[in-house]
Write a protein that binds this DNA or RNA. Structure first.
Length: 486
DNA sequence: TTAGGGTTAG
């Protein structure tokens, strides 16, 4: 596989001006095979990808394919092309997990035709679709603003050879709740609670749904109903309510609820404590958050990485990033391994304090700790560079993402395109146009607002030719303002 | 991937 890697000198394939390196210099580690292949797929012209892949003898395994698909996550069209090519491979056959990945990607691009073709193919090959497949599909439909469609799909699962049960029922009501369609989920529960024998989990999901939209009284009502039906609340139920009070800004109620939980001797756990530490912190009560954090060890409950993350975030937001970093160092000393969230919280804190250099240092440190920055990490840094007017540095960090290690997502493009308007420079508008083309190419659909903004910008700076190109793109995407529609 | 705690701006 080394030869394959050697063929690809660089994965940087954008036409933006090269800028001096800034802070992201780390010792290059040997490339993983999946990274190499992802890179190759990104680099190669779609027309010749099939023959290019054939030329290289790769030992395709489900694990390798899944890793590559994960790397191509934010480039839907390439990911699906790769999936389709391997689907015709003479010896390798896709695993159910690979199909689920492909289904998820197609659904995210709202390519529903491909989605259902894949589902049918899974069925023919007796690889599914599984309850997990339907969890993915219904979640995407709900997120795309089609909750009714999601419900219909759930109700027709059995027609695809996948029987509904209590688990899949709980999944669909959770999907509805997480997309804020709580009333719809609640009605569904009322209709089907007999058929599926709704349990504590079902009611916890609905209560949590009402908490998510800050309707704690309604959540309490749901729990009352649950008890009346002979179901016993669990610690999860109480943790849901506790978090709900904090989220709704009912700090006093949250505190009293927490005290009652302790008094009732229900074995409160690390989740309870993390909720309280975070809740008080976000409400600005840092001292109280710290006190609870210190108290938990005495109570025989060890903090988790998530608890540390909560405290660190709270210190960043309401105290100082210096104190947050002290806690960070302390957790490392105690043998905890900071995770992606820990780093992202610290990096955001540093960026917010204007300490961009130190933020970049931490980004290097996380790489050394084999905790690769993710798209959120990059987005935070890019956003703050741009907000500081350091647009070149923002673009430079963006350019580092191109390698297939971490592809930009919709947020990344939106952040950068917005930044291209602050300096009122003609060149910036050209970059905005290129970014717009690139994001469409990668399966992202820009908002009408974004198109129009870039178009106006290009016209005002005398880039009529380029503007026309963007206009054609916009019409292809079906995002043309009414007066221009063909 | 049947439910609860850490990342998403001010």
């Amino acid at each position: 596989m080394l030869s394959l890697y050697n063929r690809i000198p660089s994965c940087s394939h954008r036409n933006f001006p090269k800028l001096p390196a800034y802070g992201l210099t780390t010792v290059p580690s040997p490339p993983q095979e999946d990274a190499t292949i992802a890179c190759l797929v990104l680099e190669t012209d779609p027309q010749i990808l099939a023959s290019t892949l054939e030329k290289h003898t790769v030992q395709w395994t489900p694990e390798l394919v899944n890793k590559v698909l994960k790397r191509l996550w934010n480039h839907g069209p390439k990911a699906l092309q790769f999936f389709k090519l391997l689907d015709r491979h003479p010896t390798y056959t896709h695993s159910p997990a690979a199909f689920d990945h492909a289904v998820d990607i197609a659904a995210r691009m709202r390519d529903y035709k491909t989605l259902w073709t894949l589902v049918a193919r899974m069925r023919t090959r007796q690889l599914g679709p599984s309850p997990k497949t339907f969890a993915i599909i219904t979640e995407r439909y709900a997120a795309a603003g089609k909750p009714d469609r999601a419900v219909k799909i759930f109700l027709s699962m059995h027609e695809h050879g996948c029987q509904q049960n209590l688990n899949s029922f709980n999944t669909i009501i959770d999907v509805l709740c997480k997309s804020k369609r709580v009333e719809k989920a609640y009605s569904l529960l009322k209709v089907f609670r007999g058929r599926f024998r709704a349990d504590t989990v079902s009611y916890n999901i609905i209560a949590n749904g009402f908490c998510l939209i800050k309707r704690t009284p309604k959540a309490l009502e749901v729990l009352k109903e649950m008890v009346e039906r002979g179901l016993t609340p669990t610690l999860t139920t109480y943790n849901i309510m506790l978090k709900g009070f904090f989220r709704a800004g009912q700090i006093k109620e949250a505190w009293e609820f927490f005290l009652r939980m302790k008094r009732r001797k229900c074995e409160i756990d690390v989740v309870t404590y993390t909720t309280v530490v975070h809740g008080f912190g976000v409400a600005g009560e840092v001292k109280k958050a710290q006190k609870v954090f210190n108290e938990m060890v005495g109570a025989g409950v060890l903090p988790s990485v998530a608890t540390y993350n909560a405290l660190i975030q709270v210190l960043c937001k309401k105290d100082s990033v210096e104190n947050a970093i002290l806690v960070f160092e302390e957790m490392v000393r105690k043998g905890y391994v900071p995770n992606l969230t820990t780093y992202n919280v610290v990096i955001r804190g540093l960026c917010h304090a204007g300490e961009m250099d130190r933020a970049m240092e931490f980004m290097g440190r996380m790489k050394d700790d084999e905790c690769e920055p993710n798209v959120q990490t990059y987005n935070v840094v890019i956003r703050y560079f741009c907000d500081d007017g350091e647009i070149e540095k923002g673009l430079e960090v963006f350019d580092k993402m191109g390698s297939g290690d971490c592809l930009p997502n919709l947020d990344t493009y939106n952040i950068l395109i917005s930044a291209m308007f602050v300096r009122k420079k003609s060149d910036d508008l050209l970059v905005a146009g290129k970014l717009l083309i690139e994001m469409v190419d990668r399966g992202y659909l820009p908002r009408k607002f974004t198109f129009n903004r870039v178009l106006n910008g290009l016209l005002l700076t005398g880039n009529q030719g380029f503007a026309k190109e963007i206009l054609r793109l916009q019409s292809k995407c079906g995002r043309l303002p009414r007066q221009f529609r063909l």
